[in-house]
Design a protein around this nucleic acid. Structure first.
Lengths: 212, 212, 212, 212
DNA sequence: GATGAATGAGTCTTCATTCAT
DNA sequence: GATGAATGAAGACTCATTCAT
């Protein structure tokens, strides 16, 4: 446990530096200087630089996986739109709190190790899958218009990534509003037009959705 | 002129390698081996590795700048939506043809040099600006619903990036359809709901738009 | 005394590891893990790694010194050949029992510390001296033919080292026979030819020798 | 070829240092300083330190293999003893000229790499095999007494190693005499006693041998 | 202009030893 | 006495860049 505490301490320091300088420009010297430990101490807790980095990456990916929940359908369950909103809020609030990790994930995690690259790619694929499934479901339920759900899923995923990236860069904190904005944009982008007519903002969609 | 030809030749080879291995894992040896020139020769044409990379980057950014045109409003000009569609098609067709450059831009260009990072960021900011301006204009013209145009601009930008990234990775070639899908999604996401009612797909929006 | 017991315990464990991996590839971690003590504890009992090694080395050298006795000449003393045989048996039986130490001495003790190197060299010189003295004595006594006794002493020493090395490597246990074989070979190599004529095997030499 | 020359130059310098300090205490800095090349240059010619060392080792082993020839029997061939003498002389003269390599082989080549260790062991096994075969042949021809030819082969091999080691250490140059002394000792050690009677020194043996 | 051998600063990593608890 | 976490000096290796030919 003590060991874990130490690891965490080093991880926290490393996180900051990686976020600022990226993987390659960060060297062991930077990390140990910042963490105020000796060179050798680092290697007591981590195999090497790459392992440390991977651990940070797994941290973000793990947290994100936890926060993205499948849509559940049932009488007891909240409206789909509500569930989407919750997902989005959970993800955004985590990413904006852990903006260093976000930055690492979005900007510094790619291109130096084929294995890591594919791990990240896979993660995004998984998320895109989930979005796509939701869209397909929406179509079945008559809430979503016909479209190339794969392409649209990527559009949505990309939109989220970009907004989050921007928000984390500028340390924006109005998560609620951002989530709403993204959701609104996304839902309108995919909703069946007749459900949107004459309505204003998201409530409209939600209302349309709840009209079943 | 001969000089330029030589530079281009080396750039082409480097492009491939950077796309496959990224900046750091690509070394001068790789490049000169592939370009069949001597190590020293490389430095006759390029200041250093970074300069070569920057040049490739400028190449994409330049091409993209050329292909993204401001919306022009006037009696002679095509419909705004048409102009957007043209922009999107020009960009996509370039990115998918030059998928190596796309890959470099989207996956390998960040995190190893602060200056490059900010150059890229700036480019994206500029694009986001343009999208935002279009949205603001749309609002003025009564075509676009009220929204946080900055956030939505990032959503749109991100969506395009992600779809393009996916497409370039899998060498997709159905640019026209992809452009349509993105456009459709984006327009619906921002259009005034009343303009969408009862309509199907993009033609609806276009119609609404032309109805002024 | 307790202290000595602890030292011995550690030494025994270290002995095994040194024999298997040699000085450089054996690290303190190996030793303390095997001896089930803490890293720091090691340094309570030994100055450092080198000292531990030296102690093992002194152990072999000391034992060998004890087991190699000078030839004594006198009416009460056994025949010279008998004394040689006893020396050889004592040495071989020790080396083969303590095959790890043997391995350390013969294969891993050289080349990493000038001081140790010269200590070992000196030991061998001393042994070579003793052999040479025996040969000189043999010449005086008319038992040994004229020869470069130094060179021959080295031959004998080298022969013993090699046979022992082989035997220890393969855990051979037929010490008596090996001793006999070496003795036989060595004695024949140095005996005055006229004493060997018409005789068979070592008994012959022994007989010739006892014939004075 | 130029490349080979350079390698050789570095090898020569490294040879000296390895002979003086052994493998582990020799570091790349020592070698490049001595060879007056840059750190990186070293790695243009050698994979790493170990590879360089192996090359030196292969050099000695290769040369020795060349110099140790099988006994050939036939009417045109020199006497077996003469062939042995030639082998011994060729080996000794090489080892004493290349005393650094000899030193490396005999004193510094063991215990830091399992693979190298076994390569050297194999070499010696091969030599021991050859000696043993000669002895077996000698027994068939009635020149050599019955004995444990394996053990005796090791005695002879060890004797040679020790004498050579001593000679190389003190830069002895009287190869001819040393060879004679070793040969004399060895032959007497193995010859059938009846062939030795009444004879003096090696000529006796040679004569006995040629008497068939 | 072209070449490619040479350079050496920069990094990671290991491991014997120390020392606060 | 015992512990084992921490230390940091030492050393191997890489690779962008230079320069004599």
């Amino acid at each position: 446990m003590e060991r874990q505490a130490r690891r965490q301490q080093v991880l926290q320091h490393a996180k900051r530096i990686f976020a600022r300088k990226g993987y390659h420009r960060t060297n062991i010297s930077d990390i140990v200087a910042r963490a105020r430990i000796a060179r050798g101490t680092f290697y007591l807790y981590f195999e090497n630089k790459k392992e440390l980095f991977e651990e940070l990456l797994e941290q973000v990916l793990g947290e994100l996986r936890l926060r993205i929940r499948r849509l559940r359908i049932g009488p007891e369950e909240p409206e789909p739109v509500e569930q989407l909103r919750d997902n989005l809020r959970r993800v955004l609030s985590f990413l904006i709190t852990e903006w260093e990790l976000t930055d690492i994930l979005l900007n510094h995690s790619t291109g130096f190790d084929p294995e890591l690259d594919s791990r990240i790619r896979e993660f995004y694929e998984r998320v895109a899958d989930q979005i796509q499934r939701s869209l397909d479901l929406g179509i079945q339920m008559g809430l979503v218009r016909e479209c190339d759900t794969r392409a649209v899923a990527y559009c949505i995923l990309g939109g989220i990534k970009e907004v989050v990236g921007q928000a984390s860069r500028h340390r924006r904190r109005e998560i609620g509003r951002l989530a709403e904005e993204i959701l609104d944009f996304g839902l309108r982008g995919v909703a069946r037009p007749d459900l949107l007519a004459g309505l204003h903002r998201t409530e409209a969609v939600a209302a349309g959705a709840s009209a079943k």
